[in-house]
Protein backbone atom coordinates (compact mmCIF):
# COMPACT_ATOMS: atom_id res chain seq x y z
CA UNK A 1 0.00 0.00 0.00
CA UNK A 2 1.34 3.41 -0.96
CA UNK A 3 -0.06 6.91 -0.53
CA UNK A 4 -1.38 7.18 -4.12
CA UNK A 5 -3.35 3.96 -3.90
CA UNK A 6 -4.67 4.84 -0.47
CA UNK A 7 -5.77 8.33 -1.59
CA UNK A 8 -7.28 6.77 -4.72
CA UNK A 9 -9.34 4.31 -2.68
CA UNK A 10 -10.34 7.13 -0.33
CA UNK A 11 -11.45 9.17 -3.32
CA UNK A 12 -13.53 6.19 -4.48
CA UNK A 13 -15.25 6.07 -1.07
CA UNK A 14 -15.86 9.83 -1.22
CA UNK A 15 -17.45 9.47 -4.68
CA UNK A 16 -19.93 6.88 -3.40
CA UNK A 17 -20.68 9.04 -0.37
CA UNK A 18 -21.33 12.05 -2.67
CA UNK A 19 -23.69 10.02 -4.82
CA UNK A 20 -25.64 8.71 -1.82
CA UNK A 21 -25.67 12.21 -0.33
CA UNK A 22 -27.06 13.69 -3.54
CA UNK A 23 -29.82 11.11 -3.78
CA UNK A 24 -30.89 11.03 -0.13
CA UNK A 25 -30.88 14.80 0.44
CA UNK A 26 -32.66 15.70 -2.81
CA UNK A 27 -34.74 12.49 -2.71
CA UNK A 28 -34.07 12.10 -6.41
CA UNK A 29 -31.72 10.46 -8.86
CA UNK A 30 -32.15 13.11 -11.56
CA UNK A 31 -29.11 13.28 -13.81
CA UNK A 32 -27.69 9.99 -12.53
CA UNK A 33 -27.21 7.18 -15.04
CA UNK A 34 -28.78 3.95 -13.87
CA UNK A 35 -26.83 2.20 -16.62
CA UNK A 36 -23.47 3.39 -15.27
CA UNK A 37 -24.49 2.31 -11.76
CA UNK A 38 -25.62 -1.10 -13.06
CA UNK A 39 -22.25 -1.52 -14.83
CA UNK A 40 -20.37 -0.70 -11.60
CA UNK A 41 -22.44 -3.29 -9.72
CA UNK A 42 -21.47 -5.81 -12.42
CA UNK A 43 -17.81 -4.72 -12.23
CA UNK A 44 -17.73 -5.21 -8.46
CA UNK A 45 -19.59 -8.51 -8.59
CA UNK A 46 -17.28 -9.98 -11.25
CA UNK A 47 -14.07 -8.70 -9.62
CA UNK A 48 -14.73 -8.99 -5.92
CA UNK A 49 -16.59 -12.26 -5.67
CA UNK A 50 -13.09 -13.73 -5.69
CA UNK A 51 -13.67 -13.44 -1.95
CA UNK A 52 -15.72 -16.61 -2.32
CA UNK A 53 -12.75 -18.64 -3.51
CA UNK A 54 -10.35 -17.34 -0.92
CA UNK A 55 -8.63 -14.32 -2.46
CA UNK A 56 -8.09 -12.61 0.91
CA UNK A 57 -5.19 -10.16 0.83
CA UNK A 58 -5.85 -8.09 3.96
CA UNK A 59 -8.68 -6.93 6.18
CA UNK A 60 -8.54 -3.59 4.33
CA UNK A 61 -8.94 -5.31 0.97
CA UNK A 62 -11.79 -7.56 2.15
CA UNK A 63 -13.69 -4.75 3.89
CA UNK A 64 -13.44 -2.50 0.82
CA UNK A 65 -14.65 -5.27 -1.49
CA UNK A 66 -17.67 -5.97 0.70
CA UNK A 67 -18.41 -2.24 0.94
CA UNK A 68 -18.23 -1.71 -2.84
CA UNK A 69 -20.48 -4.68 -3.62
CA UNK A 70 -22.99 -3.68 -0.91
CA UNK A 71 -23.11 0.04 -1.71
CA UNK A 72 -23.47 -0.54 -5.46
CA UNK A 73 -26.47 -2.81 -4.88
CA UNK A 74 -27.98 -0.27 -2.47
CA UNK A 75 -27.58 2.49 -5.09
CA UNK A 76 -29.37 0.34 -7.69
CA UNK A 77 -32.16 -0.23 -5.18
CA UNK A 78 -32.48 3.53 -4.47
CA UNK A 79 -32.74 4.36 -8.17
CA UNK A 80 -35.16 1.54 -8.96
CA UNK A 81 -37.48 1.68 -5.93
CA UNK A 82 -37.84 4.84 -3.79
CA UNK A 83 -36.55 7.34 -6.38
CA UNK A 84 -37.89 5.62 -9.48
CA UNK A 85 -40.34 8.46 -10.34
CA UNK A 86 -37.43 10.93 -10.54
CA UNK A 87 -35.50 8.96 -13.15
CA UNK A 88 -35.83 9.85 -16.82
CA UNK A 89 -34.95 6.71 -18.81
CA UNK A 90 -35.36 8.68 -22.07
CA UNK A 91 -31.99 10.42 -21.52
CA UNK A 92 -30.15 7.30 -20.27
CA UNK A 93 -29.92 5.66 -23.66
CA UNK A 94 -26.28 4.68 -24.10
CA UNK A 95 -26.13 1.18 -25.60
CA UNK A 96 -24.81 -1.17 -22.92
CA UNK A 97 -24.44 -4.03 -25.40
CA UNK A 98 -21.37 -2.36 -26.92
CA UNK A 99 -19.68 -1.82 -23.57
CA UNK A 100 -20.40 -5.27 -22.15
CA UNK A 101 -19.66 -6.95 -25.51
CA UNK A 102 -16.40 -5.02 -25.92
CA UNK A 103 -15.28 -5.87 -22.38
CA UNK A 104 -16.12 -9.53 -22.98
CA UNK A 105 -14.06 -9.64 -26.18
CA UNK A 106 -11.14 -7.82 -24.49
CA UNK A 107 -11.27 -10.23 -21.54
CA UNK A 108 -10.89 -13.17 -23.93
CA UNK A 109 -7.97 -11.52 -25.76
CA UNK A 110 -6.15 -9.96 -22.79
CA UNK A 111 -5.98 -12.07 -19.65
CA UNK A 112 -3.27 -13.74 -17.58
CA UNK A 113 -4.68 -17.26 -17.82
CA UNK A 114 -7.55 -19.02 -19.59
CA UNK A 115 -9.38 -19.78 -16.38
CA UNK A 116 -12.80 -18.63 -15.25
CA UNK A 117 -11.57 -16.41 -12.37
CA UNK A 118 -8.89 -14.72 -14.52
CA UNK A 119 -11.24 -14.05 -17.45
CA UNK A 120 -13.82 -12.69 -15.00
CA UNK A 121 -11.17 -10.43 -13.45
CA UNK A 122 -10.06 -9.15 -16.86
CA UNK A 123 -13.70 -8.59 -17.90
CA UNK A 124 -14.26 -6.46 -14.79
CA UNK A 125 -11.14 -4.39 -15.54
CA UNK A 126 -12.15 -3.63 -19.14
CA UNK A 127 -15.78 -3.00 -18.17
CA UNK A 128 -14.76 -0.57 -15.43
CA UNK A 129 -12.67 1.35 -17.98
CA UNK A 130 -15.81 2.33 -19.91
CA UNK A 131 -18.55 2.14 -17.23
CA UNK A 132 -18.68 5.93 -16.76
CA UNK A 133 -19.61 6.53 -20.43
CA UNK A 134 -23.44 6.38 -19.96
CA UNK A 135 -23.09 8.95 -17.15
CA UNK A 136 -20.91 11.27 -19.26
CA UNK A 137 -23.35 10.74 -22.14
CA UNK A 138 -26.24 12.07 -19.96
CA UNK A 139 -24.18 15.13 -19.00
CA UNK A 140 -23.31 15.73 -22.64
CA UNK A 141 -26.89 15.26 -23.80
CA UNK A 142 -28.43 17.57 -21.25
CA UNK A 143 -25.48 19.98 -21.61
CA UNK A 144 -25.32 20.63 -17.88
CA UNK A 145 -25.14 18.88 -14.52
CA UNK A 146 -25.86 19.63 -10.90
CA UNK A 147 -22.69 20.52 -8.99
CA UNK A 148 -23.00 17.52 -6.68
CA UNK A 149 -23.17 15.19 -9.68
CA UNK A 150 -20.01 16.74 -11.10
CA UNK A 151 -18.24 16.34 -7.73
CA UNK A 152 -19.24 12.67 -7.80
CA UNK A 153 -17.80 12.16 -11.30
CA UNK A 154 -14.68 14.16 -10.37
CA UNK A 155 -14.05 12.02 -7.27
CA UNK A 156 -14.39 8.87 -9.38
CA UNK A 157 -11.99 10.29 -11.96
CA UNK A 158 -9.53 11.24 -9.20
CA UNK A 159 -9.64 7.66 -7.92
CA UNK A 160 -8.66 6.38 -11.36
CA UNK A 161 -6.09 9.13 -11.90
CA UNK A 162 -4.37 8.35 -8.59
CA UNK A 163 -3.92 4.71 -9.57
CA UNK A 164 -1.47 5.82 -12.28
CA UNK A 165 1.21 7.23 -9.88
CA UNK A 166 0.45 4.14 -7.76
CA UNK A 167 1.50 1.89 -10.65
CA UNK A 168 4.60 4.01 -11.32
CA UNK A 169 5.50 3.76 -7.65
CA UNK A 170 4.91 0.01 -7.58
CA UNK A 171 6.93 -0.52 -10.74
CA UNK A 172 9.99 1.26 -9.37
CA UNK A 173 9.68 0.38 -5.68
CA UNK A 174 8.34 -3.19 -5.87
CA UNK A 175 9.06 -4.30 -9.44
CA UNK A 176 5.31 -4.84 -9.75
CA UNK A 177 3.75 -4.33 -13.19
CA UNK A 178 0.26 -5.37 -14.23
CA UNK A 179 -0.04 -4.43 -17.93
CA UNK A 180 -3.77 -5.20 -18.24
CA UNK A 181 -4.73 -3.04 -15.26
CA UNK A 182 -2.36 -0.27 -16.40
CA UNK A 183 -3.55 -0.10 -20.03
CA UNK A 184 -7.26 -0.30 -19.09
CA UNK A 185 -6.66 2.22 -16.30
CA UNK A 186 -5.00 4.71 -18.64
CA UNK A 187 -7.90 4.36 -21.11
CA UNK A 188 -10.32 4.94 -18.25
CA UNK A 189 -8.49 8.06 -17.09
CA UNK A 190 -8.33 9.47 -20.64
CA UNK A 191 -12.15 9.15 -20.86
CA UNK A 192 -12.39 11.67 -17.99
CA UNK A 193 -10.12 14.33 -19.53
CA UNK A 194 -12.84 16.35 -21.29
CA UNK A 195 -14.96 16.28 -18.18
CA UNK A 196 -12.06 17.39 -15.97
CA UNK A 197 -11.29 20.30 -18.28
CA UNK A 198 -14.77 21.77 -17.76
CA UNK A 199 -14.81 20.79 -14.08
CA UNK A 200 -11.59 22.70 -13.37
CA UNK A 201 -12.35 25.71 -15.58
CA UNK A 202 -15.97 26.16 -14.45
CA UNK A 203 -17.23 24.23 -11.40
CA UNK A 204 -14.22 24.87 -9.18
CA UNK A 205 -14.47 28.58 -10.03
CA UNK A 206 -18.04 28.65 -8.74
CA UNK A 207 -19.80 28.40 -12.07
CA UNK A 208 -22.38 25.82 -13.10
CA UNK A 209 -21.28 22.82 -15.17
CA UNK A 210 -22.51 23.79 -18.62
CA UNK A 211 -21.23 22.70 -21.96
CA UNK A 212 -20.34 25.49 -24.40
Amino acid sequence: MNIFRFLGDLSHLVSIWLLLHKMTTSKSCTGISFKTQALYALVFATRYLDLLYGSWHSMYNVAMKIFFIGSSLYILYLIKVPFKPTRDPAIDTFKLEYLVGGALIMSLIANYEYSFPEILWSFSIWLEAVAILPQLFIIQRTGEAENITTHYVAALGAYRGLYIPNWLYRYFAEGFFDPIAVIAGIIQTVIYLDFFYIYFTKVLKGQKFELP
Partner: peptide
Protein backbone atom coordinates in the same frame (compact mmCIF):
# COMPACT_ATOMS: atom_id res chain seq x y z
CA UNK B 1 5.78 -11.56 -13.98
CA UNK B 2 2.13 -11.39 -12.97
CA UNK B 3 0.80 -14.42 -11.18
CA UNK B 4 -2.88 -15.17 -11.84
CA UNK B 5 -5.12 -14.85 -8.83
CA UNK B 6 -2.82 -12.35 -7.09
CA UNK B 7 -4.83 -9.23 -7.79
CA UNK B 8 -4.34 -7.23 -4.62
CA UNK B 9 -5.64 -3.91 -5.96
CA UNK B 10 -9.24 -2.77 -5.78
Amino acid sequence: EKTPGQHDEL
